[in-house]
Structure formats: structure tokens, C-alpha cells
Simulated assay, not measured.
Amino acid sequence: MTVTGRQKAALLLLQLGKERAARVMAQLDVAEIEDLTSEIMRMDRVDQRLADEIVDEFYGVAEIGPGVGGGPGFAQQLLEASLGKEKAAGMIERLQASMAGHSFEFLQKADARQVVSLLDGEHPQTVALVLAHLRPDHASAILAGLPVDVRADVAHRIALMERASPDVVAVVIEALQRKASAVLQPRELAAVGGVQPLVEIINRADPTTEKSILEGLFERDEALADQVRSLMFVFGDVVLLEDRAVQLVLRQVETGTLAQALKGSPTEVRDKILTNLSDRARENLVEEIDLLGPVRLSQVEEARAAIVQVIRGLEESGQIVVRRDAEDELVA
């Protein structure tokens, strides 16, 4: 069995007992403590011979009892002894949240259409719970595949969701496990859902799905819909970007796409883009816009969505920081 250095350190701490282990962890930085605690939370019972070998490797002498216990309970006690209850609670919650997605790992690798079929007939709250645990891009594809009348309901429930009971999640996992014939070992989880996860899901949806979800949200909860809209980046928000950020974006957009996107756009948006082009590029773009003639609205929306995706990609990679108010924007 291959054991990593982090796992060896975690095993050693388990054998020191809470008080001595706490003194050791108190000498580590926060990142190291989180790494070791994450390993401890994954451990339940460890083979005695392996434990002996680890102790022998570190100290040359093994003096432990029968078996080594770990798990969330031990991890929390250890953290409370070294960091205090308040900091320990926050760290445990962050670790549990980061581990939550593993509970639905078999869905992470499944095709979105397969997941849609799997969730067919499930209560919207169940669907919301599942999507809140998946990667935003995967959840977005699944949300787009749901019936139109279900999308907004599910989106609304994701936004209002704060925490998920481990018992409820276990029931959902067990039911989906039976339907999908997949092997899954559920783990405890903490905070899931909320407005920001919903925004990330919608941001990755196609324009038609995005519009459908927002309209449905508006019908159910106008204030929530406004909150979601305020956190989303749309094509018109390009005026909020610094000039250097706009220039980075324009390098990745073809002139034809840009010309279609600017059809019927507000003057301030058009000016923002044109002023960040060279004289020659500006002339070529204006000429192409004039040559286009009437353009279908769907084509304009697709072009604008493509540019927004470029902006979101640059933001996610850290090359630009998008501001949505009067704050300064930083460009790497």
C-alpha cells in the first residue's frame, strides 16, 4: 500500500492523542493544519501493521494501542484543542464543503443528458440539491436540459438553499445510486447552494436557457431575480472594464463576431470597444458592421454571449478582475 507523506503525518498525529497532537498542530500554519485535518477526517480504522511501520519510521519505537481511530469527530476535537472552538468550526465547515462534491462523484463524470434522465421525475428540491454539488459548468448543462417549467423552480431552490442535512443527502445519494447502479460512499457535507452558485451555473448557460431561467425567477421572486442579475456579467457590462482589460478581450474575438455583437448596441458600449482598437482595426470593424445589414436577434445574442464567455474565461484565469459597480478593476 502506498502512503503519502501527508497520510503518514496524519497517522502519527492520531497515535499521539488529542493533547499532544494539538500541541504539534499549533506549531503548523493554517494550510498545513487543513491538509492534515482533511486526511484525518477520511480515516476510520487503520491497519495496525501499517500504523506500526509509520511510527517506526518516525521514531523507531512503536507504542500504540489496538487500532487507530480517526473520523470527523476526532478531527473536530483535535482542531478545537489547537485552534479554539470558533476557528475549528469554521475550518471543519470549509473542509466538509470541499469534500461534499465527492458524494456525487459518479454524476460528475456522467453525460449531462444521462443525468437529466436520471433526475427525471425527482422533486425539484432534490434536483436543486444535486446540482448545487456539481461543477458549475456541468450543472449548467444539466439545468439547460431540464423542462422549461422546471428550470426556474430548481434555480430558485438553489438560490435559497443554505445547508443540507447529511441524513437527507444520504437518502438522495442512496436513491440515485440505485437508479444509476453506481458505487458511492456518502460523506458529510456543509454549506451548499446559494445565490453565487446559481449565478455561476447560469453564467455558463446558453442565452436561451439564461433568459428562460431569469424570466422564471422573476415570476417567482422579483427581488431574488434582481439580485442574481446584479451578480451576472452581461455584454453591456463591458463598459465597466478598464481599457487594458477590453484590449485583452478583443485580442480573442474575431472581427465578424464583434461586428454582429455591436449591432443595435448602446452608444457607450460601441464607443468603449471602438476606442480600444487601433485606427485600422476600428475602420475595418465599422466597415464590417455597415456591410452586415439587418441581423437576426438570435445571431446578435449568440455573438454577445461568445464575447461574454471570453470575458468570463479571462476573469476565471485571473487575467482580469471584473467589477460590477464603482470599484477599481485590477488587470494582471
Rank of each mutant, 00 (worst) to 15 (best):
M99I: 08
E288V: 10
A164M: 13
R187E: 15
L134K: 02
K18Y: 06
S98A: 14
H102T: 10
V238P: 02
Q319G: 07
Q108F: 04
R312C: 06
Q7E: 11
E174L: 10
L160V: 02
E315G: 09
M232V: 12
V286N: 11
T208Y: 01
Q319F: 11
A305Q: 14
R151Q: 15
Q319Y: 13
E210R: 14
I289D: 09
A223M: 08
A305S: 12
L248M: 15
A144S: 14
S317I: 09
D167T: 13
L262T: 05
Q108L: 09
R282N: 15
A88L: 02
Q7S: 08
V168L: 15
T37G: 08
T257R: 13
Q260V: 08
E53I: 03
I173W: 02
L262N: 03
I320W: 03
A31Q: 08
Q177Y: 01
S38H: 02
R135E: 14
V183D: 10
V168F: 15
A182R: 13
K18F: 05
A110V: 10
V246E: 05
D279E: 15
A180C: 06
A139H: 05
S265P: 03
L258D: 10
G313K: 12
R296C: 05
G264R: 04
G313E: 11
I273Y: 03
D325P: 00
R187P: 04
A164G: 06
R312Y: 06
D290T: 14
